[in-house]
Design a protein around this nucleic acid. Structure first.
Lengths: 348, 348
DNA sequence: CTGTTAGCGCCTTCAG
DNA sequence: CTGAAGGCGCTAACAG
């Protein structure tokens, strides 16, 4: 019923092997023969059977992309960038690799499950985005899975995640979250702020910890007390920013600035401040992190640290495909850039 | 080297068929036997070979999701929702289906290419999101591809895209773009606006056309002239909103409101107005469409039409998996809800 | 409930 | 440059 390679071969009057070679283009085939085969393919509307080739060739053209939440532009941008680079060298509808996007929701189990599923698919590569969960047991489990994936021939690339030891990753592009966190707080301190609230991300995640460490380093460098009451943890979403800000304001009505773990959280913080009748930045300055597309459009525009998400994702994609050499030592640090905008100013 | 079903069978002292049955759980197997097999699987760290099963079973556990741009939350939200519903009935790391996200960038060729690639993968289902391109030739090509996909056993579901004839889609969930477009303009007219600029999406797309038709219907219902100078087309991005607004202002300095094709475009429009020294909504009202998460956080909050993107995506996913019955006739219209917020008010 | 027997459709040596 | 042959790892009838 469904047309197979053999049908094409018959129609083109060549052997199945020849058709295979034409389709994969990895082997010399006479131009005339190729033409004949291609015509037969068209005539028959033939479409290669992916699973069959994957089985025979022991590798598929699927690339896994693990993200926390694809609805979040932070991940959407990276996933899109990865995807834009994994296409083959072009040509017909061949050579193209496809991205399997796996939404882990930040859950360790789902992360593991998806890795297994990708191993099952014999994924050509796997790109893990976003911060890692800081739990020894889980880290070991992940490392084990990644090792097995690598052994099975998948190229593993970390994007925006710190390199973890014995992972067999081809490369790790890690964001300089610590440096960025430090920059943003330094900017605020430089403006004269002394009571700075910090809305951190969820605990036990490298991203959260690094950004917070940067913040603290900036405080320490100026000998400013790191009042524990000024730090609140919560998920990376708007709601958390809102609630945390209300809480911070309750604990420390004297604060003059709020640093949020990321832009989305910062948005929630702004909303809370506004609801309390506080003006930004006149009464309270607000800063975010990531520089998502909307951040320049909120009013006042958000001061934040720009992370080159698209570039990083694209590079991860190219490295995963072997189109670009991994960085020396397999690790590259991607730095953020402080974007000073209207949401921060000197304290009252 | 790599461990296979046969290895597991040997270790559990059963036949390969039995192992297969345990793993797929579609067949009765004695509890004791199952235990033994499962233990062997664990001991050997066995992972099923996806391509091999797909070949033998003639179906894969991949679900294609076509989107214009995964970095855009409009699509990210739907893709995430689809993905959340395609998981199997649960259980071990089995039964899980994975989402192959295909970024078409709005290009007809890429749309076709990806459909072919999904057919090659023998995708269990394919969900097409977003509006369709209005070009007879392309529409026919797509319809043909979809028909072939359906014949090959993939369940095709449209999400946010009008039902196209002879497509063999299991279901089409279409957004009521016309109704939404009409509502938003009616809202503005009700406030007293008479000169309303309209920033439409790219031409030749159903979404663009329907929203614009709704806008015009609202004007017509009030016998207000549809001044062609008040409509500008452009891509669905911020930049386009900015540029279009500058152009509208040039053409019609007397306009008192701007309706954007979607929220992202509206953001650009707001930025342009602000740069021109115009206040929102005091000088010019602005309205968007979609109600993306950031829309409530911009200042002033955006009046817009909320589309239940997550719900629609989830439903599409369930229908694609056969977990939910398709709507009667295969077509369901998903209505938007007018969200009146601070960005619109009566004219000066 | 379990084992046996054939393929699924393609790639890939190996000859020629 | 092209053909022939074997097997990739699993599933799906059939028997039993």
């Amino acid at each position: 019923m469904t047309v197979t390679l053999a049908d094409v071969a018959a129609r083109a009057q060549v052997s199945p092997a020849t058709v295979s070679r034409v389709l994969n283009g990895n082997y010399p085939v006479a131009a005339a023969t190729r033409e004949r085969v291609l015509r037969a393919v068209d005539d028959l509307d033939y479409v290669l059977n992916g699973p069959a080739s994957a089985l025979a060739a022991a590798t598929s053209d699927l690339v896994g992309v693990l993200v926390n939440d694809i609805a979040d532009p932070f991940f959407g941008i990276m996933a899109g960038a990865v995807q834009s680079e994994i296409g083959g060298p072009g040509g017909r509808a061949g050579g193209e690799r496809m991205a399997v996007v796996c939404n882990t929701g930040g859950s360790p189990e789902r992360e593991l499950t998806y890795l297994t599923l990708l191993q099952r698919q014999r994924a050509a590569a796997v790109v893990l985005t976003g911060g890692a969960i800081e739990d020894a047991e889980h880290a070991a489990a992940i490392a084990g899975k990644l090792r097995r994936l690598a052994e099975a021939g998948s190229r593993v690339v970390l994007c925006g995640r710190p390199p973890s030891p014995d992972t067999d990753a081809v490369a790790a592009l890690t964001f300089d979250n610590r440096g960025g966190g430090r920059q943003i707080t330094e900017h605020l301190l430089g403006l004269g702020h002394r009571r700075v609230g910090y809305i951190a991300g969820p605990e036990e995640r490298t991203t959260t910890r690094h950004r917070l460490e940067g913040h603290r380093a900036a405080l320490a460098a100026r000998d400013i007390e790191d009042d524990p009451a000024l730090t609140v943890h919560g998920p990376y979403d708007r709601r958390s920013g809102y609630d945390a800000t209300v809480e911070l304001l309750r604990r420390a009505p004297d604060l003059t600035a709020v640093v949020a773990a990321n832009d989305t959280v910062a948005l929630g913080a702004c909303a809370a401040l506004r609801d309390k009748g506080l003006r930004i930045p006149d009464d309270v300055s607000v800063a975010g992190f990531d520089d998502l597309p909307f951040s320049i459009d909120v009013v006042p525009a958000l001061t934040t640290v720009r992370l080159p998400l698209h570039e990083a994702g694209a590079r991860a994609g190219r490295i995963a495909m072997g189109k670009e050499k991994p960085p020396p030592g397999g690790v590259a640090t991607v730095h953020g850039e402080l974007m000073v905008r209207g949401s921060t100013a000197g304290p009252r």
